[in-house]
Simulated assay, not measured.
Amino acid sequence: MKQFETTLPENYEALKKQANYTSSWRDRLHAVEELSAYQHEKVIDLLKNRMQHDTVYPVQTAAYDALAAFGENVEKPAPARFDIIKNTDKIFLRVKKSLPKDHTVADFAAKLKRMRLDVYDAYEGDKGEQFMPWLEERWAKL
């Protein structure tokens, strides 16, 4: 059985902040991965929170994997079946209406990233390589 560190890492507060940073799923994933070496009560609580409440599935599963490796009794999260952020269409429509009529999907993506980095980042993390085709499809339907 793998041995884990049972103390908190020296940079725990920074990692905790990073794990909850809403505008970067990559930062959250990195923090979860780094914390997965520390089997400490505070880390376990933080990982359970990420597993249950993160908007991005790869972050949820990384937290789950760490908790399972610690021997915690946890259920693997299921990927979201619907929008991972409430009122996504309203947000997209607001962005689209703020642009000139002849804008492109690239213009739309850039404006979304500026106006709502949290939304852009969450879907980019959730969709991976399919993000731009997915975004273009949603944009075309608005």
Rank of each mutant, 00 (worst) to 15 (best):
residue 1 M to G: 14
residue 1 M to Q: 10
residue 2 K to E: 05
residue 3 Q to G: 13
residue 5 E to K: 12
residue 6 T to Q: 10
residue 6 T to D: 03
residue 15 L to Y: 01
residue 16 K to C: 02
residue 18 Q to G: 01
residue 21 Y to W: 08
residue 21 Y to G: 01
residue 21 Y to C: 02
residue 23 S to N: 11
residue 23 S to D: 11
residue 25 W to G: 09
residue 27 D to K: 15
residue 30 H to P: 01
residue 30 H to K: 15
residue 31 A to G: 01
residue 32 V to L: 03
residue 33 E to D: 09
residue 34 E to H: 07
residue 34 E to S: 07
residue 34 E to V: 11
residue 36 S to L: 03
residue 39 Q to V: 00
residue 39 Q to I: 02
residue 40 H to W: 09
residue 41 E to W: 03
residue 41 E to L: 06
residue 42 K to Q: 13
residue 47 L to S: 04
residue 47 L to Y: 05
residue 48 K to R: 14
residue 49 N to P: 00
residue 55 T to P: 06
residue 56 V to S: 14
residue 57 Y to D: 09
residue 60 Q to I: 10
residue 60 Q to N: 15
residue 61 T to Q: 09
residue 62 A to Q: 02
residue 63 A to V: 05
residue 63 A to H: 07
residue 66 A to C: 05
residue 68 A to V: 07
residue 70 F to M: 12
residue 71 G to K: 02
residue 71 G to N: 07
residue 72 E to T: 12
residue 73 N to S: 11
residue 74 V to W: 00
residue 75 E to M: 09
residue 76 K to A: 12
residue 79 P to E: 12
residue 82 F to M: 10
residue 83 D to L: 02
residue 85 I to E: 13
residue 85 I to W: 05
residue 87 N to I: 08
residue 87 N to R: 14
residue 89 D to F: 13
residue 90 K to S: 15
residue 91 I to N: 05
residue 93 L to H: 13
residue 94 R to Q: 13
residue 96 K to L: 08
residue 98 S to Q: 09
residue 100 P to N: 03
residue 100 P to M: 06
residue 103 H to K: 11
residue 103 H to Q: 04
residue 103 H to Y: 07
residue 107 D to N: 11
residue 107 D to C: 07
residue 110 A to T: 11
residue 110 A to E: 12
residue 112 L to I: 07
residue 112 L to A: 02
residue 113 K to I: 05
residue 117 L to R: 14
residue 118 D to Q: 08
residue 121 D to M: 00
residue 122 A to V: 13
residue 124 E to S: 05
residue 124 E to F: 06
residue 125 G to Q: 04
residue 132 M to E: 12
residue 136 E to N: 15
residue 140 A to G: 08
residue 141 K to R: 14
residue 142 L to I: 15
residue 142 L to F: 12
residue 142 L to W: 10
